[in-house]
Simulated scan of single mutants.
Amino acid sequence: KLAELDKFRLEQKLSQAEDALLKAELELKDVLIGQGYTPDDFSKVPVETMKIAKVKSGYEQSKSQYELAKRETEHATLTAPFDGVVANLFSKPYNPANTSEVFCTILDTKGMEAEFTVLENELAFIKKGDKVTVIPYAGGSSFEGSVSEVNPLVDTNGMVKVKADVNGEGKLFSGMNVRVSVRRNLGEQLVIPKTAVVLRSGKQVVFTLKEGRAMWNYVHTGLENATEYVVSDKSRKGVEDGLLEGDTVIVTGNLNLAHEAEVNVR
């Protein structure tokens, strides 16, 4: 229970409506008995006759007023529809009720929803059920979730809205700014840090370490995330430029390296 109106007037109104309904029921019985029916025969009264009898006795009107009073009394108590945390509660005890304004907001901080946008050309990489990692800009832990909805509309900026259900563990706040990473399982791939890739004459090059020397390797990069590239695998048929599983890759100090230059490992 979140709040409750003063029920004195409502309870009195409900009591009066209940008395009026009982009187109307007696009047209805009197009307039916006056037409030759006994209390045991009320269930056999024709529909049209019963309808006229209810109008004469005022039964339908009394019943309607009773149900209205009962509903108003029940709705005088405001209850939370689910477990959560109360936010934006500014009313005080004994304040007049303002039915034109929201009383408060209930937040389910365990089942939060992250909303973010992706570029139109990245839409093919995202599908419902993909795993996501959410990291608040305010710092703290990361939280796991999954894509729950992809809005089928591209806006004027070429962006698509995506939503993900996130287990906030009670530590996330509504409206918080977060960084969202979407993960897809692509099977076994050769993956290297982005810092390992340098450009030489417009081509992508990765230096590997062999017997204390830097070895020049042309590569082709594929999918990427914020820190890593998927690179071509020379062990696969028809692939000439790339790396092999187990190669030692030079990831720093490689901007000015030359082929077979001596290097020191730190």
Rank of each mutant, 00 (worst) to 15 (best):
G222Q: 09
D6H: 05
Q204S: 12
V134E: 04
V85K: 15
V160G: 05
A17E: 01
Y229P: 02
Q65T: 09
S15E: 09
K128F: 02
N95L: 04
G36H: 10
G246F: 00
D19I: 14
I33S: 04
L107D: 14
E25M: 08
S141K: 13
S201Q: 12
N88W: 05
V239M: 06
Y94W: 14
G238Q: 13
N217V: 01
S57W: 04
E228K: 11
T227Q: 14
A138H: 07
S232M: 03
M112C: 08
G175V: 05
S146T: 13
R9N: 12
P136T: 07
E18I: 05
Y37S: 05
S181Y: 08
S64P: 00
N254V: 02
P39I: 03
V160E: 01
L119T: 12
F173A: 11
F125T: 12
L123K: 06
E188M: 13
T221R: 04
E240H: 08
M215W: 12
K128C: 06
A87V: 09
L255E: 10
G58S: 06
L153C: 00
K44Y: 09
V178E: 00
V154D: 01
L14S: 04
T73M: 10
P46K: 05
P93E: 15
L5W: 00
A214G: 01
E262T: 13
D155E: 06
A69D: 02
E115M: 14
K29F: 04
Q65S: 10
S62W: 05
S91Y: 11
E188D: 13
Q189P: 02
E72Q: 14
R213V: 07
D247H: 08
I192R: 11
V86T: 14
D83E: 14
T252M: 02
T109C: 08
P96K: 15
D165N: 14
L22G: 06
N121Y: 12
L5K: 03
R183G: 13
V55M: 11
D247P: 05
K194N: 06
E211V: 00
N167V: 01
R213H: 10
F82D: 06
E25T: 10
V178R: 02
K194H: 08
C104G: 04
K7D: 11
E18F: 01
V197M: 04
T117K: 13
K234S: 03
E101K: 14
E144K: 12
